[in-house]
Design a protein around this nucleic acid. Structure first.
Lengths: 197, 197
DNA sequence: AAAGCGAGACTGACCAGTCGGTTTGCCAGA
DNA sequence: TCTGGCAAACCGACTGGTCAGTCTCGCTTT
């Protein structure tokens, strides 16, 4: 396991790290590649060696975090038996993960919106992935009889929106704390589909 | 009421109209001022006579729509007596207004996010206005005894997020239709605070 | 004639992306 | 164990297109 670097982290990782920091702080358009170069202590050449362009560098971050989130949710879900319990742990895991990874959350939730059509496509794609995950498990909850039938698609998107907005606010202002979010949002969402804990 | 224009619409309005069209279609950064010039059949000079810069032109649109929305919600609310009924018509009015004004909605909900700090500030400001409106009326519902006590601040933001996300999806894809949104989202949100129609 | 309004050619800062060059790691052959 | 050769990884000065904003001029209205 030999690296060609004095630095323990690979160049690619250093770039991703720096990009995450700056993008999450300034947003896509206000971030200059040269800032990423400085922060990562690499060079333009290195960036363009590892990534085709600025856009793809950004999207790599989005994908990276979306993958992580999905993996965690799936891992958590399979432990539970079908029905509302799966829905609950899915929500818990999302909230937890966002809480633990504030900067990636900001990139995914905030910075990836309103950047033009390429980014919107990506955001839709990611959203659809998660909304679908929720919808499937809600549907199962209905089948299993945990909750009454409802329009799971709309509910799934509404839930995501609710989570996003509260998290975004927390990302911006540090308030309300994850603790409080968990205590209010989780029961509220479950109640919204007619499930009283 | 004499204008110095052959065209019935004032120049300022033509600019705002064109800007709305293009911004909502392409987003802030992908919109060229020259496109707005073409679409509005005016000139750079006219734009810079009426607006200090591109950013302010965009924000003028955001404000314009936020004002409209707030006015409508307030008008609707005063007709009802305090408590959950006010909450219900506030939601109804929001959903209705977004439904009727698709392009402005897109500007407010999508294009104003992720554009850097100036825009985020504005978005927060607008959000806070509406979240507060909701929170106040929820608080009253609690006082009046329509619903059990809860963390109205978190709920308010969660509701806004839920509405936003579903509306955004509709704006993008045309689906689900406002009808369906109304039928699912409204009861769901009310249920989330423990109020069964 | 002066103010109000608008036209549109022009400018210059900015910054993503390029490109010729260097360094490093690795291996084959002697 | 040295050597030379090669490619992958990396460096950073430079470029060229882009576009927000400026500026000068002209028309219209009072």
């Amino acid at each position: 396991m030999i690296t060609n670097n004095k630095n323990p982290q690979s160049t690619r990782e250093r770039i991703l790290d720096a990009a995450l920091n700056i993008f999450s702080r300034k947003g896509y358009y206000d971030t200059r590649l040269d800032e990423i170069v400085d922060e990562s202590a690499t060079s333009k050449g290195a960036i363009y060696f590892h990534f085709p362009n600025k856009e793809q560098l950004f999207l790599a971050l989005v994908d990276q975090f979306a993958d992580l989130l999905e993996r965690r949710v799936n891992e958590a879900i399979v432990q539970e038996e079908q029905g509302i319990q799966r829905v609950r742990v899915a929500l818990e895991t999302c909230l937890n993960t966002f809480g633990r990874y504030r900067r990636p959350a900001k990139i995914l939730l905030v910075q990836a919106a309103g950047l033009g059509n390429t980014f919107e496509k990506k955001r839709n794609e990611v959203n659809e992935r998660f909304a679908n995950l929720i919808a499937v498990n809600l549907e199962e909850s209905v089948t299993v009889g945990d909750i009454a039938p409802l329009d799971v698609e709309v509910v799934a998107f509404a839930w995501m929106g609710a989570i996003y907005e509260v998290i975004i606010r927390w990302v911006h202002t540090g308030d309300p704390e994850p603790e409080r979010i968990m205590q209010t949002l989780l029961p509220m969402l479950l109640r919204s589909v007619g499930y009283e804990q």
